[in-house]
Design a protein around this nucleic acid. Structure first.
Lengths: 338, 338
DNA sequence: TCCGGTTTATGAACCGGAAAAGCATTGTGC
DNA sequence: GCACAATGCTTTTCCGGTTCATAAACCGGA
């Protein structure tokens, strides 16, 4: 069962290959009559343009790349990436552009993937996630000349367009909320310190605490796993005076922290308030349901994809901020009375 | 910065395009001397074969496809898919074969993706997941002549090779374990009833309960979300006599069930035992940590990918079962004394 | 020196589609 | 009635590899 080609269609229609190409691409050069006839035949035989042939002449691969650089066991627990991917694809589907996904263990391997993809002409561009300070990937995609957008704060994106949401503002909102509830000692269990967005949240956290005149604001950095979240929580809650509220950088750590608190005899939210960053179904099924910072991750992915498609098309889109994340109070936060 | 081609290399080496092709592909037709010289030049200019050109003559796309057919909001919570994907890629990396990923809302869209991918020559084959009874996808890939393997039980795979793990056996093990702990009324919160593996687990569950001589064994079907898991649990625990143990089809529902039980004043495991199917970090961070059925999902994905590569290479591999999943007792199961 | 066989290299065709250039045929303006 | 343009289609070339047919160079043996 061979796949039909434009030559087959040309033969059946009694015209030349060129005419078929014009007809099927909606370009001038054939009469509407002929075009319709050719279209009908193409439809009938189930013709699809061969991407290899098309990209060989057109130089477009009709695919974009996304490399996730975290160990598999961390990836699985983060709904974030799957939601991001599904948003990206919603956007790509319209242009019948495909998504190449690759999971790599480290940054070096990620760069190697870009080199390979670009060298092989497999992708037209890429979305960069999880930027860290002075990220070598930005320089590398620039060197390659590969179109790319950063899904993250523009401060690390260099010349690349960025789509991001203003996390600093939301962090301020979270702290003001906790302060308004009467909390004086707020702690934070953060993610990987190398990641730029961790730093941005760190800074915003420090600034927010200072602005609200809070007493202490210890920050513990982790690798996003539940174990480290639990360990960090244990440490924070063992200190004296101990914090009365903790902000977690992801949901799994927040759940782990919730368990640790209950284990240590601290009721949530009566004795400890908990805020999770990035909402997920998980945050809603535990008791109490977790107050969370929520944002539309698929929309974020779609926005990044849209921007990348424009870069590939030769435009120079400005990066644009996403609608900001919102604080969604649930049952894990409550007023604190000493 | 144009990408170098074999013509560039040929010019620099003072040989023909053909010679370069032979040299770089390790095929006879050039002397070892010339081969080394050509290789050195290719290395120097950073040459990579253009996949489009290569697949245009070779007819291999050097990519395989994976379509996930669940709404995005369900996908995010299931670590399973991310782990599967990372396993698939481990295997593909060795053959420098790429993975095309697509998330679609329904089965019809999924079939359309296969048609498009195959018609466009984008992929050499696909891995099918989440089979249901009389799955139309099997017939469709057969019709297309597209190589494919099923990640799931062979009973639905028709002529396609399948890789699967024997879930029935583990289900038996789970029930025996609960029966040995003294449980007489075991319930089950299952996933989507249309999925073949849900049916297989349903049957194995019924058979196991009968074999162990258990009293009642109600099964509630859900859509895998925490909400439905919670609702099903509430219903099951409201019945009289109520079950003393519940087996959940995924971790998020198990966690939701745990919360519901505690909410209803039932201590876990003292008043209710809980078993989660498919282990994840999540199962370990809640209190008590959940007894779970665990399996090596990345290895499963790698196995499926390996099998698909062999099908693409023209072999007719038999499907082969995975090492079986194992029951991992943790804190959510305990003896029941009436 | 000639001959069959191997090694090494060349040139050209080919994959499937895009696009530029070429070429009749018809229509338009003056 | 003629120059000129638009239309509708064909021919040709190109993209970057692979591969086949061919041939030159070389080899040992007769």
């Amino acid at each position: 069962m061979k796949r039909p080609t434009i030559a087959d269609i040309a033969r059946r229609a009694g015209v030349s290959k060129g005419a078929v190409s014009y007809a099927l691409n909606g370009r001038p050069g054939v009469s509407e009559e002929t075009r319709a006839r050719i279209r009908a035949i193409a439809q009938e035989v189930g013709w699809r343009p061969n991407v290899a042939a098309r990209s060989l002449s057109g130089a477009r691969a009709d695919a974009i790349g996304l490399v996730l650089c975290r160990p598999a066991r961390f990836l699985g627990v983060e709904p974030f990436f799957m939601e991001l991917v599904s948003g990206v694809e919603d956007e790509l589907a319209a242009s019948s552009c495909a998504l190449m996904l690759q999971v790599v263990p480290d940054r070096q391997a990620e760069i190697a993937v870009y080199r390979r993809w670009w060298g092989e002409g497999r992708v037209d561009g890429a979305i960069l996630v999880d930027l860290c300070a002075a990220d070598p990937r930005v320089a590398e995609v620039e060197r390659l000349g590969m179109p790319a957008v950063v899904a993250g704060h523009p401060s690390g994106a260099g010349p690349l367009p960025a789509v991001w949401s203003d996390e600093a503002a939301v962090m301020g909102e979270v702290i003001e909320y906790l302060a308004a509830l009467g909390h004086r000692r707020v702690a934070r269990v953060a993610g990987l310190p190398a990641l730029l967005h961790t730093r941005i949240r760190d800074e915003a956290f420090a600034r927010g605490c200072a602005a609200a005149g809070l007493d202490g604001h210890p920050v513990a950095h982790t690798d996003y796993t539940g174990e480290e979240g639990a360990r960090a929580t244990r440490l924070l809650l063992s200190a004296r005076p101990r914090p009365t509220a903790i902000v977690y950088d992801n949901d799994i750590m927040a759940v782990a922290g919730l368990s640790v608190a209950q284990e240590m005899g601290l009721a949530v939210p009566a004795g400890l308030s908990i805020v999770a960053w990035d909402d997920s179904p998980l945050a809603q099924v535990v008791r109490p349901p977790l107050t969370a910072v929520t944002r539309d991750v698929p929309a974020y992915g779609a926005h990044a994809a849209r921007t990348l498609l424009r870069v590939i098309a030769g435009e120079r889109p400005d990066g644009a901020p996403e609608p900001p994340a919102r604080l969604l109070p649930r049952g894990s936060t409550a007023p604190f009375s000493s």
